[in-house]
Amino acid sequence: MSRTDILAEGEAYDAGTTERKATRRDRWLTGTTFLAFFLVWVGVTGAGHWPPLIRPIFLPSPLAVWQAFLALLEHGYQGNSLWYHVGISFYRFAFAFSSCVLIGVPLGLLLGMNRTARAILEPPIQAIRPIPKLALLPLFLIWFGIGNTSKIIIIAAPVFPLIVIAAMQAVRSVSTKKIQAARCLGAGNWTVFSRVVLPACLPGIFTGIRMAISIAVTMLVAAELTATSDGIAWMSLTAAEFLSTDIVLVGVVIMAVLGFSLDRMIRAIELRIVHWSGHE
């Protein structure tokens, strides 16, 4: 062990502790942001102790939203329990999203590896990408009916190309040096793919998946805009027609929690699997 190497180790250790301190500080600041946001909400809605600055019909107090949530838990909404609405929405979301990952990632990897496949499939995928998928909603309703199929497809429509292209780009940006290194160590095509290309792609694929989550949640609202009578977004949309702002907010919060917790979950998986992320 040389002296310089040991020094470098020591520096790495110091960098580690400073980093941890910085992370703690960041968490504090993030927490404070949320708290401030909540306090403003309480302040402008009055919380029962002073006259609200904003009328409850526009912005109900946190307490009113909580009570609406409890009432929904007890009585359900328009004939179905709250869990039913959450469940059916989650089913649409999860089915669309997991299909996109299960088909899109392997397809993207294939496009990245194989020039022929890329020539055949990349132009149509790139051509479809800029089309606003909401514009296709009426078409999907005509083609796939008013059942769950059309809803799943409208969610998948923007998510699928995004994941395919993220996986493809990840393959294309794998360092040539690493592939060359594997080859001159005696690795064949399959070993190069499974032990070098695939792991090297994972950070890029995870980034694509996380970007797709927020789009998928947005499209869930679009999917439940018309031709449905269940789902959490549908609950919010119909409640708005009756100016039941508290129920609208319950729906919004549930969807926000869904999107946020999925993002955190995938981030946690990513940190566990892709521990080298950020180191080329």
Binding site: S175, K177, K178, Q180, A181, A182, R195, V196, P199, A200, L202, V274, H275, W276, H279, E280
Partner: peptide, 9 residues
């Protein structure tokens, strides 16, 4: 190689 050819995973 000069650098960057190790497998970080």
């Amino acid at each position: 190689f000069q650098q960057g050819a190790l497998f970080n995973w």
